[in-house]
């Protein structure tokens, strides 16, 4: 592996909104880009990479308009993943390892207020066996929730506890939504209730990565990426063990997930946090989703990137020495990315 060390040196996100405020995706993103440029003092970056999804916007090429927010002139070295922007960060990290460039801008954005995201997610499913059933993301998640609860012998109160903690944490985070303690919500799709589901959210986020001395120059306490890895498992929910996450386990192992103090998990449903804690070996001593996590703000396509940003922010402000950011993609945690960050500079 390359000797280049890469760090998260800046993280900016919108104050996420639970309803459409009338801003386009580009308008949501532009102030975030402006702020992160101000914060780093950089006007141009060695590489730029973003994550977004056409189906969220209901039209092709959603990333093209977003380029207007970046200031891509003169032309920039740029790429895009049709995935959560955490994978854009992965692509940028790989690029920085080459050593040709030493800074990268990564961003993601999404507005779930514009559509019914659980229904949009139907279009991600196997087009022969699953999508024709009209199966939505909430229904699929509920299948996994029951599989997990029954496998570990837990009850639904375990889910409620996750929601209560996430929402309480979210209320202390100015960027997250202000959601009340879980009430007696009816089942959305049993065994999941309303509070077990992610809230509708509009938002955007950006991260700047830098390598080596450039990172030290741009940030007082860079959050060094000591390990980052992502893994997938088979798509068909009937061809894998839904009760746990083998792909998260492997990614955590490869990224060196042990010994973290803080973990920001891309758990969009309450049970996913339980599955991920187990897969990543996070004990009770680990502070999980102090930001509130996706259950308190879920600007899809940026949600995973925000996890890495929040984890890095804990390193930046000195509250953690070693933190973990996690991102997921696909139905029922099919893909998982783990990024381990450290305040210790071994450069």
């Amino acid at each position: 592996m390359s000797a280049v060390n890469v760090a998260v040196v800046a993280f900016v996100q919108t104050r996420h909104s639970g309803e459409d405020t009338g801003l386009s995706e580009t308008e949501l993103l532009a102030p975030v880009i402006t702020e992160i440029k101000e914060r780093t003092g950089l006007r141009r970056f060695g590489f730029t990479c973003s994550g977004s999804n056409d189906y969220l916007a209901g039209a092709p090429f959603s990333f093209v308009a977003a380029l207007d927010a970046v200031g891509a002139w003169p032309p920039i070295s740029e790429s895009h993943v049709e995935m959560d922007a955490a994978w854009a960060l992965y692509e940028a990290w790989v690029k920085l390892l080459h050593g040709e460039v030493d800074t990268a801008l990564v961003y993601g954005f999404g507005k779930t207020s514009q559509t019914d995201y659980a229904q949009v997610a139907t279009r991600q499913l196997d087009p022969y066996y699953l999508a024709p059933l009209g199966l939505d993301a909430d229904s699929l998640a509920a299948l996994q929730a029951r599989a997990h609860l029954e496998a570990v012998g837990k009850g639904e109160d375990a889910l409620r506890a996750v929601a209560a903690r996430a929402r309480a944490a979210g209320r202390t985070n100015p960027h997250a939504l202000d959601l009340p303690d879980p009430a007696d919500d009816p089942y959305a799709v049993a065994p999941l209730r309303g509070y077990d589901l992610p809230p509708v959210t509009d938002g955007a986020a950006a991260i700047v990565l830098a390598s080596g001395d450039k990172a030290r120059e741009l940030c007082e306490r860079p959050a060094w990426i000591t390990g980052i890895d992502h893994r997938a498992e088979p798509h068909s929910p009937g061809a894998r063990d839904l009760a746990r996450s083998e792909s998260a386990r492997i990614a955590g192992e490869k990224a060196g997930a042990g010994g973290v103090e803080v973990a920001e998990l891309h758990a969009r449903y309450t049970h996913e946090e339980l599955i991920l804690r187990e897969a990543l070996g996070l004990g009770d001593e680990v502070s999980v989703n102090p930001s509130g996590g996706p259950l308190a703000a879920d600007p899809v396509m940026a949600t995973g990137l925000i996890r890495i940003g929040e984890a890095a922010a804990r390193v930046h402000d000195g509250t953690a020495t070693r933190a973990l950011g996690h991102a997921a993609s696909g139905p029922c945690l099919q893909q998982n990315l783990v990024c381990v960050l450290s305040g210790e500079d071994h450069g």
Partner: peptide, 15 residues
């Protein structure tokens, strides 16, 4: 049945 979920309020696209 290996796992199941219960849809109390079906969506228009549901069967």
């Amino acid at each position: 049945v290996t796992t199941w979920s219960w849809v109390a309020d079906p969506r228009p696209t549901h069967p």
